[in-house]
Design a protein around this nucleic acid. Structure first.
Lengths: 220, 220
DNA sequence: TCCCACAAGATGTGATCACAATTGTTATCT
DNA sequence: AGATAACAATTGTGATCACATCTTGTGGGA
């Protein structure tokens, strides 16, 4: 029953994971033969994987000069968040109108699990559940295209987070934001859900930009 | 000075053009060897081109079953426009704040050219200039990521238009919308620019959906 | 007559090789 | 010593081939 996967897709997943976890740094050259030996594959699947990752926005390629992991700067991230906020708000509004009781219960459960993880000191788990919390809401909007767009963005943001770190002290403010979003969802209030989502993601953007600027200042 | 292009990229451009102009229909199978002979290339660049087009959202591929031109239905387009409206409004708002005198003049000129083309009966030129009108505004927002996103959407929408046709009678209403947007830009009024853009694109969505439903009704 | 199994052809995937462009290094000239 | 040109090693790109998988057409059985 499981989908047939090509070798190229497996390699793609491995490269993606290596970028996300920092084993392949931003701007790192992605040499085909090198990756092929690293993953125990022939160069061919690697080529296809790289081509595919370019489309996902994780890899940048130049003709005859090879591929590199994308590089990100503050400006880039600002722009990414502008798009992200716009799309997330649109999906959050639709979700408030379309979510059913089961979905609502799922989201509430995820928030409870997230709180438990954070209070238990397991920040990594908290971050992971946080993503599922938001993603479950956007699923309720029923917009498949929007979902893949947000997934891609989230991937890049996760890669950034794994490098620049996230600030645990922010997790408190998150809880209050999530409560407001949950309430808006329960009341089927699209306006409120959109506004709360915009505020929440805007805070995330500011947080990430502060992290990065702090990092860049430290490097110089 | 011109960028070096690989054969794969040339093939990609040719496939993209063939999809856009209807020579490759929605849902058409894209056989590697077949395309290779069609474009006078070897199978290899075609493979890379297809992989790349999957990332652009014009082609859908399944492992071991090959690639097809994407298929679109009303639902798909509705979702696409939800995202498109969200992003366009965000960029339009930024454009209103960021556009300079030169940019403003360019946009105004484009609208004048568009009107002239339409009044001259050259609807195809009118549609092309219309795209440049909107694109020039989003360029002013200075958000490169948003621009590529909108470009991709526009490509798919153009492919749909070239099949289902557009209604010339709508071009009148467009002029009024564009005037409002131009005014909002000139006055650096982000709110007004966002609202007018939302209204304009929403009309476009309704128009396209009506066209498609009419087409689907005719087919059944 | 319909359905399923099986075989033959078609097609995507992976491997290997040959070539061209790029990059890094060294040697030579100013 | 610094810059530059030629050369060598590396690496991306394109071609061809071999194999696995899917599709299609045919025939036999219920």
């Amino acid at each position: 029953m499981d989908e047939p996967v090509s070798l190229a897709e497996s390699v793609k997943d491995m490269i993606r994971a290596d970028i996300l976890d920092g084993r392949l740094d931003f701007g790192a050259r992605l040499r085909i033969r090198e990756l092929a030996t690293r993953y125990g594959a022939s160069p061919m699947p690697v080529r296809e994987a790289l081509r595919s990752l370019v489309g996902e926005g994780l890899v940048a390629a130049v003709a005859n000069k090879g591929a590199r992991v994308v590089t990100v700067d503050a400006e880039h991230i600002r722009h990414l968040f502008t798009i992200r906020i716009a799309v997330e708000v649109a999906l959050a509004r639709q979700a408030a109108l379309a979510i059913d009781a089961a979905g609502l219960a799922e989201v509430a459960t995820l928030e409870r699990e997230r709180l438990a993880a954070v209070q238990g000191g397991d920040f990594a788990a908290g971050v992971a559940i946080n993503q599922r919390f938001h993603r479950r809401i956007y699923e309720a909007a029923g917009n498949a295209e929007g979902l893949v767009l947000l997934d891609r963005h989230w991937l890049l943001l996760a890669a950034i987070w794994s490098r620049y770190g996230y600030r645990p002290e922010r997790l408190g403010g998150v809880a209050s934001d999530h409560d407001h979003i949950l309430r808006a969802l329960a009341e089927r209030d699209a306006d409120a859900c959109g506004v709360m989502t915009a505020a929440h993601v805007t805070k995330t953007r500011q947080d990430m930009l502060a992290q990065i600027e702090g990092y860049e200042a430290r490097v110089r």
